[in-house]
């Protein structure tokens, strides 16, 4: 079965800038100067599904969501975890 390609989106009305998501999924989420998440528009890369799901489940405001990407969008290999933390 083909793997579902998904994107991470944040509902800005619900989000209150806890920043938990950026800690759990730093490959895809950084924080702006006010502490609100900036989410990569790219599909969740291979190998990061578990982390993405965990970030979504951990958001205290239920503001983070995984959405199916439009047809034809391909997931990329994940960046190395350490590199993106620097």
């Amino acid at each position: 079965m083909r793997r579902r390609v998904q994107v991470v989106v944040v509902d800005p009305v619900a989000c209150d800038g806890h920043g938990v998501c950026a800690e759990l999924l730093p490959e895809m989420i950084s924080l702006d100067p006010w502490g609100y998440p900036i989410v990569s528009p790219e599909p969740v890369p291979f190998g990061l599904d578990r982390e993405a799901n965990r970030a979504v489940a951990s958001c205290p405001r239920l503001a983070l969501h995984l959405l199916d990407a439009p047809d034809g969008v391909q997931a990329a290999a994940p960046p190395p975890r350490t590199a993106s933390r620097s």
């Binding site: 800005p12 009305v13 989000c15 800038g17 006010w34 609100y36």
Partner: peptide, 8 residues
Amino acid sequence: DQCGPCVR
């Protein structure tokens, strides 16, 4: 006054 980035 709902979305952080817009408010700030």
